[in-house]
Design a protein around this nucleic acid. Sequence first.
DNA 1: GATGTCATGTAATAAGTTACATGATTTG
DNA 2: CAAATCATGTAACTTATTACATGACATC
Lengths: 184, 184
Amino acid sequence: MILEYILLGLLREPATGYALKTEFDEGASHFWSAKLSQIYPALNRMEKRGWLKSTVEASDKGPERRVYTRTKAGEKALFRWLRTEPIVGMERFAYLAQLIFMGQIEDPATTLQFMKQLRELLSAKLNLLSSVAEGMKTDDLNIEDFHAHLSLRMGVLSLSAKVRWCDESIKRIDARLAKEGARV
Amino acid sequence: MILEYILLGLLREPATGYALKTEFDEGASHFWSAKLSQIYPALNRMEKRGWLKSTVEASDKGPERRVYTRTKAGEKALFRWLRTEPIVGMERFAYLAQLIFMGQIEDPATTLQFMKQLRELLSAKLNLLSSVAEGMKTDDLNIEDFHAHLSLRMGVLSLSAKVRWCDESIKRIDARLAKEGARV
DNA sequence: GATGTCATGTAATAAGTTACATGATTTG
DNA sequence: CAAATCATGTAACTTATTACATGACATC
């Protein structure tokens, strides 16, 4: 279960389920996502399995919180997973499914609008990631920041490629529409 | 449910569950995947809902087959979905999760090997997609082939970017290893 | 006769989403 | 005092994977 390994990875330092959710949204949202209602039971399972230990602490703000700490067994499980082959082939792009079948509607104007919307959505994501990446230095990073920077770069490069693809596609659709218009 | 809409899209022409699985693997694997054990119940549900009709036919080869045909209601449901906003934010890259936490192992050689493996896996996918894309003409396509070509292009462009990212990353890790070696 | 492809399904389990339920503290 | 944030969980449901079960026909 990939979520569990991501939680193990995030639990480098002890944290609550709530804090992990925040980290997820801030640092991992470009490659994975999870809801609180999935995180809490997962942490529970992991503790039963011996990968985590938890203690209940009073909070300075709000109710009591359950703080999870990664055990040695948890670390071992994580490292074992990290040494497996790169996991590929689970890619999911729902918007490509929409685009590919949109030809059946036979209305280039619909596709044009779709691609323009998609361009905006993707470039907003790109801007977010770029600003995080640019806020980091690139040289003399410690090994953990170096890894964080590597994965940010992949987000930046692949989103840039997709935005360029949107632009290219918009031009091609415009050209088709111009031809159609000329024919009438 | 996205799978159901993809099945509707594929069912432009009547087909069996088995044939849809083949189409999935050949034409849709770079943006979605599904197992037969998920496809059969889905088709069943969709027929109950009135999106499909099925008939049982004898096969020239192997056992009887259930051929599904998309109904007008199914087409309407598909077109309605196609006109919704582009679905983004479901991206999942398990290999990025591996990479980002790999810093905790503190062994650049592990990361180097990982990136080299990833490069091979991604470039194999890229070659597959490129050859399909190159086998298509680019001008004067009918509207459906045009859409197929658009989505192939996204695969080619974004995979190229990722392969370049692997190369860039491999160089950076090599540089770190060289530095480390120099220090010893 | 073994292996591969065609063909359809069910059962059990795992993973993920939406909705429900509760309640304290902080900030405007 | 209303809204936001902090905080934890359960219940119901949907979606997806793995394993099981069956069997015809084709090719080597």
